[in-house]
Design a protein around this nucleic acid. Structure first.
Lengths: 338, 338
DNA sequence: TTGAAAGCGCTAACAT
DNA sequence: ATGTTAGCGCTTTCAA
């Protein structure tokens, strides 16, 4: 159907323009060494022929790909924000991104293998699940930057959120509102859950509330939040810090259906500042991770490693920030002050 | 840091194994023409050297990439399901996928341009926003398969859901439960919204309920659903078909907070069968799109076009299916029967 | 079964 | 400013 038989090559353009391939190459790369007149003529010919450079041949010859491989979870909403930031950051320093998704049927090692074949110069892994050992082995082959997860191995760079700090801010906020009985619905064994749990304990202790600290098993999903909500109903606290926004949403649904008002009877804080939290009818107070900062740090670090620039420290920490919305309010005036 | 100075090449493996590069190539490709003994020896050498074939060089030489380019929306949950299916389908017929994301900062033409540079043999576009003209132009250069959107151009293949049919099933289900006053919260100008609206009108007419048909402006988001929910509260129907699950969730939240029970006072049907709908505490009756069927059809069609196989019809329609869960029930026995 | 040699489309030295 | 030449890592004849 009118499809071109063969894609035009540099040589085709050169022949049509009556110049050498080297010159066309110079023009296409916008490299110095061609007159303005030639430049425009070659460009015009390329245009009419529908020529597009072959990036594989290009990098085969030049030995570099300027390609950063990104492994992300296709179902993971926050990864969407991170990918968005990575594209922007990569573009600014002249790198391209190659995406490789982890799906229920395609595990992380498959995703990584694909990127290695593509000759990426570095890998950026979003919340990887692989054992440290594998990540370390990978880092022996090419620079590896891990986001949203700690890695002990000294060859792996890490960019992550100060998880505990976010919970500190949340608890501080609730205490300032007069709450004492503040519970935490945790994330179980999810990435970041341990730090957030620790942050909760620290903050409660710091406010002299270690006695009333209360940790309820939760998880990543609305489901987990709903279960935690049911568990809290028999003896509700006045406020609760939830592992993440999805979990908080499930909890909100359950406690409201049980007749509690938010934030009248119960204040709720989430974590992630996901799209969910921002919806007007959810309007969830939450802890925002700085995706833009995380991604530009990750890309910059990858570029440094590729260039062989010494880069320290190995772990880059990004600070979260509490976004106060409508699900937190003053502690109810009865009982022991919350 | 122990990083290999230079990646080993075919020639390195050949030299170390004491054979020709051609033979190593045969072994690496698992092509016929090498003795079992040689095969295992070469493989062992490749292993110890840490050799990995360079896919760019490989395809540069063989002239083919066996690469399918996929453009998807990084924020779009259903695209996650589709990408998952595409990986599976592509793998089964020996194609690889290259992902290119559309983000708030990276538009569709950028995403497509990236894939063209990678020498994809065909493009699969998930719910593209580009004008028909651009899609048609693209289809002049390489096979293009569009998912979840109709395209008039005769060079573009289309795989899509029978949108209207899903609403038919939903309305049939509600009528069977005794509902008469069934409203539709539409999707405005969202892709598929017009067909779903049409499906609603058709189904109502078919059941002799054209008189009580009622279309309320909605949209894609929880926000839109919440607004529609508020609009319905002054004179609630007994059932409502909502444009999609997100929108339905917003509506559910509002009507429940207003004191209506679901499905006691109001039955609600969503569309998409997203993860959201499946959550135990949401348990939304909804219309499921068959992502697996859509993706395998899309990949098969792309492969046919690449191979030059004649393929008809140009538009492939996948049938949705109603998933009955907990948000639909018998019509309340008072009033005019629902 | 194995090897020698050509060349995919491009870039980078080096010439002119 | 422009052309010539060599070769990136691989596959693919073709010959041995």
């Amino acid at each position: 159907m009118g499809r071109a038989e063969r894609r035009p090559t540099l040589a085709d353009v050169a022949a049509a323009a009556g110049v050498s391939t080297a010159l066309v190459s110079i023009v296409m790369r916008e490299a110095p060494g061609a007159s303005a007149e030639t430049r425009s003529r070659v460009l015009a010919v390329a245009q009419t022929l529908g020529y597009h450079p072959d990036s594989r041949a290009r990098l085969l010859r030049s030995g570099r790909s300027r390609l950063l491989g990104v492994v992300f979870g296709v179902q993971h909403a926050f990864h969407g924000d991170l990918v968005t930031g990575l594209y922007t950051a990569a573009e600014q320093i002249g790198y391209e991104l190659t995406l490789s998704a982890v799906t229920p049927q395609r595990d992380e090692s498959r995703a990584v293998a694909g990127l290695l074949q593509d000759r990426c110069e570095a890998l950026i892994l979003l919340g990887p699940q692989s054992p440290e050992r594998e990540l370390a082995a990978l880092a022996g082959r090419l620079p590896v930057v891990v986001l949203s997860r700690g890695v002990r191995d000294s060859a792996v760079d890490v960019v992550r959120n100060a998880e505990a700090e976010g919970v500190h801010q949340a608890v501080d906020h609730l205490v300032a509102l007069g709450h004492h009985r503040i519970a935490h619905v945790d994330g179980g064994r999810a990435p970041g859950a341990a730090e957030r749990r620790r942050g909760y304990r620290e903050a409660m202790r710091r406010h002299g509330l270690a006695e009333t600290a209360r940790i309820v098993p939760g998880g990543l999903t609305e489901e987990d939040g709903a279960a935690a909500g049911r568990a809290l109903l028999s003896d509700p606290p006045s406020a609760v810090c939830v592992f993440n926004d999805r979990c908080a949403t499930g909890l909100l649904d359950v406690v409201r259906r049980a007749g509690l008002t938010v934030p009248g009877d119960l204040s709720v804080v989430g974590y992630d500042d996901s799209r969910l939290a921002r919806l007007a009818h959810v309007d969830l107070t939450t802890v925002a991770q700085d995706a833009a900062a995380m991604t530009s740090l990750a890309v910059a670090r990858a570029a440094d490693r590729i260039a062989g620039t010494p880069a320290r420290p190995r772990e880059l920490i990004v600070h979260p920030r509490l976004v106060v919305r409508g699900t937190t309010g003053p502690a109810p005036p009865f009982g022991c002050g919350g």
